[in-house]
Amino acid sequence: MDQNRRLLIALIVASTALGLIILFWIYHTKRFHTSDVVKGMCKFNFSKSRKTLVSLMDYNILESATNKFQETEILGEGGFGRVYKAKLEDNLYVAVKKLTQNSIKEFETEVELLSQMQHLNIISLLGYCIHSETRLLVYELMHNGSLETQLHGPSRGSVLTWHRRIKIALDAARGIEYLHEQCHPPVIHRDLKSSNILLDSNFNAKLSDFGLAVLGGAQNKNNIKLSGTLGYVAPEYMLDGKLSDKSDVYAFGVVLLELLLGRRPVEKEAPTECQSIVTWAMPQLTDRSKLPNIVDPVIQNTMDLKHLYQVAAVAVLCVQPEPSYRPLITDVLHSLIPLLPTELGGTLRVTTQQLSPSDS
């Protein structure tokens, strides 16, 4: 009996220990998973056998949805192809990018990265299609187009109020912070510009076009072929090929100047010394008497001057020639949040009367 009792006790102890181990494992797994979801972290796994959550879509369906890629359905055109408006089943409207035949690498990069990203300020990739030599990408439709079109198109920024512009800047900064701080390894967008910042029906901004993006931990990042758009490319990358997360910060600074001044990053018709928005604006951005006079006329005299000076100061830091002098995107984010009303995602306390309906 003593032997049986000892055996029974041993079994109870072993079962209890095993149960505790299983409970600990379940708790640890759930805690890890929940932490990742809350923080929005993405961990890249480039195994070719990896299953993607992005759908492989039928070419004939997409061709029909775009009316055989009619010019009347074109939403925009970039360096890697045209984007068309498409209508799928159940009246679901999406955007379909038809890439040029020499953009296979960009297509693969975009599918690899966006299929593993999930963030409010990153465009959602819904599907892709490979049909012979044709490559198609299917995105959520952003009803207000690009920031470039809103600022420099026919409306000339007329619907972009001061608070709406700060909201767009804040959204873009949140998207960049996700790439730099919450993706592992970090992602350098490398083609951040106003045409790659898309706006939904409520003017929430999302980063798009990841075809040129690279992983920040890549050993050969300083030897990557120079790519980007004139006016947004950081000087150290253009002159020496040195690429870092501070390259994105520089481009963000240029976008911030566009929002403030309503000017394009490069004015081709301007005198040579005034072509670059950075070169033209820098001497005036730090002069408090001149700054209010160069602000986009659409938003002149509509903001607290202290807030204007603060945004200008952030822009000046972002476009510093020396990358080590530029702030981290997280610091930029923390500088902009207090300037936006709580109703729009910031921390600025304003009364209902102070907040214009057009700002929401």
Rank of each mutant, 00 (worst) to 15 (best):
Tyr59Arg: 04
Arg326Asn: 02
Trp25Glu: 14
His152Trp: 11
Ser64Trp: 07
Gly175His: 08
Gln116Asp: 05
Arg50Val: 00
His184Thr: 11
Leu125Glu: 05
Asn67Lys: 06
Leu339Glu: 10
Ala213Gln: 10
Val13His: 01
Glu77Arg: 11
Asn196Cys: 04
Val249Leu: 04
Gly211Tyr: 08
Leu88Gly: 12
Ser358Gly: 00
Val187Gln: 00
Ser276Trp: 02
Thr347Cys: 03
Glu77Lys: 15
Phe69Ser: 01
Ile168Thr: 05
Pro265Ile: 09
Leu192Gly: 10
Glu89Arg: 07
Gly228Lys: 08
Asn60His: 14
Tyr232Ile: 12
Leu198Thr: 03
Pro341Tyr: 07
Phe252Ala: 08
Gln353His: 11
Glu267Lys: 13
Val350Met: 02
Gly81Asn: 13
Leu99Ser: 05
Leu113Asp: 05
Ala10Phe: 09
Val295Asp: 05
Val298Tyr: 06
Gly231Lys: 14
Glu71Ile: 04
Leu230Ala: 11
Ile168Leu: 06
Lys97Trp: 04
Asn293Pro: 00
Phe107Trp: 04
Asp209Pro: 08
Arg135Gly: 13
Met57Val: 03
Asp58His: 14
Lys48Ile: 02
Leu328Cys: 09
Arg165Gln: 01
Leu114His: 06
Ser55Met: 06
Asn220Pro: 06
Leu18Tyr: 15
Arg349Ala: 15
Ala312Pro: 10
Ser201Trp: 06
Ala173Trp: 11
Lys167Asn: 14
Asp90Arg: 15
Gln3Phe: 09
Asn91Tyr: 12
